[in-house]
Simulated assay, not measured.
Amino acid sequence: MDWNGSHEIVAEGRWSSSDPTALIHHIPIGPNAARVWVDVDLKEDV
């Protein structure tokens, strides 16, 4: 995961979907978003 374009890696995870109708907590993610799973956080304050 690249946080805000700085190329600093803050987490490791898996991509799930970029379908705008995909749900997170019963809410569609909408356009220009992605649903991901974070497996390991590499930086606590992010």
Rank of each mutant, 00 (worst) to 15 (best):
M1I: 14
M1W: 08
M1H: 09
M1G: 13
M1K: 10
M1C: 13
D2A: 04
D2Y: 05
D2L: 08
W3I: 11
W3Y: 14
W3E: 03
N4L: 15
N4M: 13
N4C: 14
N4A: 13
N4Q: 12
S6P: 00
H7W: 03
H7C: 03
H7G: 04
E8A: 04
I9V: 13
I9L: 05
I9G: 01
I9N: 03
I9K: 05
V10M: 06
V10W: 00
V10A: 07
V10D: 03
A11Y: 03
A11C: 14
E12M: 10
E12P: 01
E12K: 13
E12N: 06
E12H: 09
G13W: 00
G13H: 02
G13A: 02
G13N: 01
G13L: 01
R14T: 03
R14W: 02
W15P: 00
W15Y: 15
W15V: 06
W15F: 15
W15R: 06
S16A: 05
S16R: 05
S16V: 12
S16C: 05
S17I: 00
S17C: 02
S17L: 01
S18W: 03
D19P: 10
D19R: 10
D19M: 10
D19I: 07
P20Q: 12
P20F: 13
P20R: 08
T21G: 06
T21L: 10
A22T: 13
L23R: 00
L23E: 05
L23C: 02
I24V: 15
I24N: 03
H25W: 12
H25S: 11
H25Y: 13
H25V: 05
H25P: 00
H25T: 04
H25A: 09
H26A: 15
H26F: 12
H26I: 02
H26G: 12
H26W: 05
I27Y: 13
I27R: 15
I27Q: 14
I27C: 09
I27L: 11
P28N: 12
P28E: 10
P28M: 09
P28W: 08
P28S: 10
P28G: 08
I29N: 04
I29A: 04
G30C: 08
P31N: 11
P31K: 11
P31Q: 07
P31H: 09
P31F: 07
N32W: 09
N32F: 10
N32A: 09
N32Q: 11
A33Y: 06
A33V: 04
A33I: 03
A33G: 02
A34W: 01
A34K: 05
A34D: 02
A34T: 11
A34S: 15
R35W: 07
R35P: 00
R35N: 07
R35L: 14
V36K: 01
V36M: 01
V36E: 00
V36L: 01
W37S: 06
W37K: 02
W37F: 05
W37G: 00
W37Y: 11
W37E: 08
V38H: 02
D39L: 09
V40L: 12
V40A: 09
V40H: 14
V40E: 13
V40M: 04
D41W: 15
D41G: 05
L42K: 14
L42Y: 08
K43L: 09
E44F: 09
E44D: 14
D45K: 12
D45P: 00
D45S: 12
D45G: 11
D45L: 10
D45N: 14
D45I: 07
D45E: 15
D45Q: 10
V46P: 08
V46S: 13
V46C: 12
V46N: 12
V46M: 07
